[in-house]
Design a protein around this nucleic acid. Sequence first.
DNA 1: GCTATTGGGAAGCTACACTATCCATGTCAA
DNA 2: TTGACATGGATAGTGTAGCTTCCCAATAGC
Lengths: 212, 212
Amino acid sequence: MRIAELSQKTGVPVPTIKYYLREGLLPPGELTSPNQARYDDRHVQRLRLVRVLLDIGRLPIATIRDLLLALDQPDPDVHQVLGEALPSTLSARATSEPGIVEAARVRIDEMATRRGWLVGQKAQARQAAAEVLAAFEQVGADVADLLEQYADVAERIAVHDLQFVARAPDAEGKLHAAVVGSILGDSLLAALRRMAQEHESARMFGIRGDDC
Amino acid sequence: MRIAELSQKTGVPVPTIKYYLREGLLPPGELTSPNQARYDDRHVQRLRLVRVLLDIGRLPIATIRDLLLALDQPDPDVHQVLGEALPSTLSARATSEPGIVEAARVRIDEMATRRGWLVGQKAQARQAAAEVLAAFEQVGADVADLLEQYADVAERIAVHDLQFVARAPDAEGKLHAAVVGSILGDSLLAALRRMAQEHESARMFGIRGDDC
DNA sequence: GCTATTGGGAAGCTACACTATCCATGTCAA
DNA sequence: TTGACATGGATAGTGTAGCTTCCCAATAGC
């Protein structure tokens, strides 16, 4: 298929596809002549993945490029991607003073050790967790209980997530599932959490039966 | 205190504070003369909250303004804010075709009904969940199991979240806790989930004992 | 042959979150 | 009192990200 059909199948405008090609988010099509290229279903799939990571995952273009690069490695290591490529999707500008973040980092590390979590010391998720913990403290919230409860819950989710990854037949599919499951999973979990919060809130603060 | 001290206490540059004042993210200081204003600790708190919602929550300025407006209502309704103001923090550009999203919405609604969740039909979290579900399908993932597992987990988290909210003594504090807990909670949960995923992945795919 | 489309690249656009500059007024140490 | 510096308020400018427009020569398809 040519670029117009690729555009039509995915709903992505032709100039945007050209932009993604330039940015390396989409591999170039097979050139049949100096200015004619052919695209296939893998391009359709890849393009849909890019849009989903952009629109739902809100990942910057550069992060998506890195992620896809890891996905395209000839001998993919699922654990490697989970541990290194994916967490970069969490990075936030540090908002608190370094001292507070360092103290929070110690608490995160202590918690991980106590739980026996096999997580690399330089895993970005550790730092991300510490920064969020510091942010909680910045706004005067006591999260000692919440941290442990969330860690319990995270353990349970991770088991489901890895089952979801393991369900894929080959390494390539597992990687795809890991990326999609992690990024979109965050959003799905957040949305379901909001619904469950509203439900729980309705139970606690009095039920309104008008629109449920 | 004056603007320079406010800036020094929060680490936010003076021009940025002026910008926030203009945008209504920060209430104006008490004018002591036509061009002199006094700020207090509530401004410090509010400014820290704004930065945390920006840096960790990644909320756009306009959303933060709306959220703070809801926070400042004289007779705050915690349930109202949880159900209406907060979910707008989830909204994503629709990436899938309308038909797919509609089908996903039906599945979300059916799930909510089956679980007896007291959630408004027009709650934005329903639509957000449907859009993420549609995105999963766009990239060819089967999420039937995952949806139920995540919903289970969401129920558990929500109980903890509401306990966290209930711990605040007054209505104002509860609202603050609801906003902070929801927005920062998403990020904390995501970071802990990445750590737990890496741990679970290490267990499944073979342990590397080198850096844990 | 003729029109529309293609791949490719450069420049322009829009939105957002600041940041810089200006100015009249005010503070405060010397 | 005086003079350097800070302040509130306003307007304009900056940088980045993600497109979008415009252009070109080459080609497809009628």
